[in-house]
Design a protein around this nucleic acid. Structure first.
Lengths: 213, 213
DNA sequence: CGATATTTTGAGCGGAGTCAACTCTGGTGG
DNA sequence: CCACCAGAGTTGACTCCGCTCAAAATATCG
């Protein structure tokens, strides 16, 4: 029942997203993945793009010392799977029950402005992520992360957070304890309200970035 | 602390706003910039790519609280200036005397695979940067940074470091004092040798990532 | 309802930031 | 040629945020 609620929440797709992705191909088959199922692995041959129809995806890389760096999350309407080389440099996993539409692209054949647009958007997103992880205190990072989620999900107040605290920590470069503490701090300050572990309400968006000390 | 101005950067952008390069390899005029000279500014209209012929360039963004996040450095042979929106979201400055070849681009006409490849490489570079900044201790960050420089400059041992400690700090998300201390630590450990402030020799490349305690 | 995983909270410690003083470097002009 | 100087870099002392280890509380699922 809980999972179903997530699914529905993520099905809201901004019009611009649908537009960009659907030009890339004809109607593709919908593939479904259950929670924590691998979509592709580091080192696998690339060449397929994936458009999220519903659910959520994490991209991550395992470092040599065993740590995990989550590079990106993707939600309904977003397209991922771009690679500069022929192989994937990250793992892709479904976070919850997720539906993907595969977009097979073979080198040089499918170059068009829409595809370039998606690639550039991916680059901008990575650079934006960099700004967040780069230099901020834990609470600021979390605030920026939540605001990003809100923006991408459409609803400015109510956020669905399908990923675990570990995912968030590995995404923002901090431990689960610090993630938890930051949430508690924001909650205590009356900026956030948790309806459940996976449903967050932003009461004071403008204050989210300022709490830091 | 006020952080990033999210709202604009996270907005989805219609594909029509993208000004993509049409021709990457036409003969372009060589423009020279002196140290610290601005190449383009945040908010300026985009649409031109730049190929570095010699010298070095920093891309950075000013945050609302006055902090500066250096997003990338670029050296000879590299191309920068990609934007997903019609305007530049970063500043570009020459670090030292630098020669650039401008590549004037026309919107939506004649998009080629080479162009996409460059954009994807930019994305991968940003994600790689993310892995470095996401690392835990300062010395590891600096080590990864130096190894990156060595790789991009060709010489595995001797590195030219044109940027200041402040540049490095703003790139890695740490203070100049910590940058300096990290260098001193690596020097003391016999891993680095400084021939001058701008010339670094890597004595033990394999140890660069491991020093952290 | 019990078993397990996830999350929260607590206590203590260490690394990076802050503030400050000092040293080094490179450039300028006498 | 050298003295001077401003900026860059280094080093030190101290503080504090976030990591670690540990335990309690809560959520999830069979």
């Amino acid at each position: 029942m809980q999972a179903l609620a997530h699914t529905q929440a993520f099905q809201t797709v901004p019009a611009s997203h649908i537009h960009a992705a659907s030009i890339l191909n004809g109607p593709g088959a919908l593939t479904t993945y259950s929670a924590d199922e691998e979509i592709y692995g580091q080192g696998e041959r690339a060449g397929t793009l994936y458009e999220v129809r519903y659910g959520a995806v994490r991209l991550y890389r395992l470092l040599s010392d065993g740590r995990r760096q989550v590079v990106a999350f993707h939600f309904a309407g977003e397209t991922f799977g771009f690679e500069a080389e022929g192989v994937h440099s990250f793992f892709a996993e479904a976070i919850v029950e997720t539906g993907l539409r595969k977009v097979v692209t073979h080198a040089n054949s499918n170059i068009n402005p829409e595809m370039l647009a998606l690639a550039l958007r991916g680059m901008v997103r990575a650079q934006q992520h960099l700004l967040v992880v780069g230099r901020q205190c834990a609470t600021e990072k979390l605030g920026a992360f939540l605001l990003d989620l809100a923006e991408r999900q459409g609803d400015p107040d109510r956020i669905d957070v399908p990923m675990t605290r570990l995912d968030i920590g590995d995404y923002l470069g901090m431990t689960i304890e610090t993630v938890s503490r930051s949430i508690s701090k924001l909650k205590a300050a009356g900026i956030l309200k948790l309806h459940s572990l996976r449903s967050v309400e932003i009461l004071r968006p403008e204050k989210l970035r300022q709490i830091c000390e």
